[in-house]
Write a protein that binds this DNA or RNA. Sequence first.
DNA 1: ACTGGCACTCGACCTAGAGGAGTGCCAGTC
DNA 2: GACTGGCACTCCTCTAGGTCGAGTGCCAGT
Lengths: 338, 338
Amino acid sequence: MLDDRKLQVLRAIVSDYVSSQEPVGSKALVERHNLGVSPATVRNDMAVLEDEGYITQPHTSAGRIPTDKGYRLFIDRLAGVKPLSPAERRAISTFLSGALDLDDVVGRTVRLLAQVTRQVAIVQYPVLSTASVRHVELVSLGGDRVLVIMISSTGKVDQRPVEVPGITEDELAQLRGILNAALAGTSLADAAAALGTLDDQLPPPLSAAGTQVSSALLEILGTSTSTRVVVGGVPNLTRFGAEFETTVKPVLEALEEQVVLLKLLGEAATPGDVTVRVGHENPYRELQTTSLVASAYGSDGDIWASLGVVGPTRMDYPSTMASVRAVARYVGRFLAEG
Amino acid sequence: MLDDRKLQVLRAIVSDYVSSQEPVGSKALVERHNLGVSPATVRNDMAVLEDEGYITQPHTSAGRIPTDKGYRLFIDRLAGVKPLSPAERRAISTFLSGALDLDDVVGRTVRLLAQVTRQVAIVQYPVLSTASVRHVELVSLGGDRVLVIMISSTGKVDQRPVEVPGITEDELAQLRGILNAALAGTSLADAAAALGTLDDQLPPPLSAAGTQVSSALLEILGTSTSTRVVVGGVPNLTRFGAEFETTVKPVLEALEEQVVLLKLLGEAATPGDVTVRVGHENPYRELQTTSLVASAYGSDGDIWASLGVVGPTRMDYPSTMASVRAVARYVGRFLAEG
DNA sequence: ACTGGCACTCGACCTAGAGGAGTGCCAGTC
DNA sequence: GACTGGCACTCCTCTAGGTCGAGTGCCAGT
C-alpha cells in the first residue's frame, strides 16, 4: 500500500513542515530532498497519503501538512534516532553533579530537560515502591504541638504537625523509640500495616498521643505515594506565540492541574522506552492540539517515576525523544548511585 | 493646574479603558459618566491632561488611553478603595482553614490570590528575622552518610546530607545533644555565630563530624534567609492573548527568574500598605509593560515576606489592590496565630 | 468658562484585482 | 504500468483604492 517512496515523501513532509511551519508543496519537496522523481509523481504519492489520512490540506490549493496519524507513522517507522550533540551530552552528564538533595536533583533535571528540548518540561518526584522508612522523628514545637517527621530511603523528608495535649519530653522519646523500632526499614507499603497493629501495643500513657501521631504518619505515607510534579521551561512557550490558542493556552492550563500532569506522566511506563502521545491520542481534551514526549526513569526495571515534555504536535520528534530518553537514563543512574 | 473636573475626567478614562481596552473618546465619556458638561469641554480638559503627560493618543483622531504617569496619579489620588464582595471575603477567610503545614499555607495562598485577582500571583515564603531554631536532628542514612535536619520556629524543615566517615550511633546522639543545647531557641542570625564557637568545644572524637555537620547547618541557615517564591494562576495570562508580546511573554520570562521575583517582592516594604509599580516604574526591563501590585505580610510591624500579583498595566487597580491587601492581612494573621 | 459647529485626520473595514503557489487530471513517453 | 510535462483551475495572499465614522482641534458665540 505504502511503498518506500511514499514513506520517504511523508518523512520529507514532516521534516520540512516541522522546520518551516508552513504547508509543503510537491515542488519544494523534490528540490530540497533529492527524491529522483518529478513533482507530478510526488503529487500522486501525496494524493494517496492524503487518502490514507496521513497528511491533509489546510485548503484546496495549498501544500500538505501531516496529520496526527502522519506523525504517528513517522515516529513509529521513519524517525531515525538523532544522536545528541556533544554539547548536549556534556550538559546532561554534568548538570546533576553537585546536587544537594532530592529537591535539588528534581529541580536541576527539569531545568536541564527544558533547556535541551526547548520545550516545557515536567518531572515527577520519584516514588519508589520499594522505598522504605529510614527514620521517624518527633519534635516538640512547644505548647501541645508536636512535629512528626518521616524520612524515607530516597532522602525525602515529610512532616506534619499534630496536637498532643500534655505530653512530656520523656514520653515523646519513648514513643519515638517504639515507632522507629516498628517502622524503620519497613517498606512504605508495609509501614501503614505496621502502624495499625502498633496502636494496641502502646502503654496507656502513650496511647492518645500514639493515635494522633499514627494518623499523621498515615497521611504522610499517603502523600508520598501520590507524588508531586515540577514544571520548568514555561518561557519556551513564547516561541509559539503565533499558535497561542492551540499551544500556549492549553499547555498553561494543563500545567496548573497537577492531577492531569500526574496521570499523563503515569502512563509513560517502561524506562528506557520513550512514549509519545500525538494530538488526539492524548486522553485530555485540552492537550489534544499538543504532543507529549515522556519516559519513565528508574534503574534495573525498577520504575521510580516519569518525566517528559509538552509541546506543539509540530515538534522535532527525533531530537526531543533522544533528549528525553537520555535525561531519563541519566537521572535514573544518578539516583541509583546517590 | 489640574482642577477637580480634570481629575474626574482622568478617573473616567482610566476606568473605561480598563474595562474596554479601547481608547476612550470625549463623547462616550460624557455619556457613560454624567459629567454635566459638553464633549467639547471634556476635549479641552483632555488636551491639558495630554500636555501634562497623563494620557496619550495611540494615533491622531483616536480616543485617549492613560499613560503610566496617568495610572500613577489615578492610584495615588483617585482610586477609592473598592470594597471586596461578600464572596471574596468568604473565599479569603476560609481558604486557609485546614492548612496542614507551611508549604500548604503558601500553596493555598497563591491559589487564592490568583483566583480573586484573576492575575498571576506570587507568594514569597516567610522569612522571620526573629525566627529561631526549634530543633536540630541528625539521622544516620546508613553507610557513612548522615542527614542533618533543622526545624525552625516557623515550622520550616530543611535538610542536607553529609558524609561522616565512621561515626557511631552513640556519637551521633552525643553530637545531637550538644547541637541542640547550643542552638535550640537561638535566632537564625545568632545560630551561625553559635556554630562558629562550637567547633572548638567539641571533644576530639566528634570534631571531624562536627565540622561537617556545622557546614551543612550553615548552608541551611543561608538558604533559609534567602527564601523561595511560589507562583500560581499562570493560566490567567491566557486572558491577555491579544497582548502576547507586552504581557504574556514578559511575565512568563520573569516568572522563571526566581531572583528577579524575589527582588521585586522584596521592595514591597510595609505590611498593610500595598505597593504598586506601574510599567516603567518597574526596575526590570522585561516587566516595564506590566504592573506589579504587592504587599508585605506579617504581624505587628514584623515583616515576614511579601506577596503580590503581576498583570498588564491596564488592570483594575482598586479591586486588585484591595484583594492583595486583604489576602496579605489574612495570611499574616493566620501565621501569627500558628 | 463653557458650548455648538465645523473642517479635518486617520484607522477600521470593505471590495476588487493581480500574482502565485499548488493542485488534479490527462495525454504522452519510456 | 509507472512516470512525466503540460494545462486549467483553485484559492490564498497581498496591494490599492474608497467609504465610513469616531474622534479631534479650533473658533466664534453665548
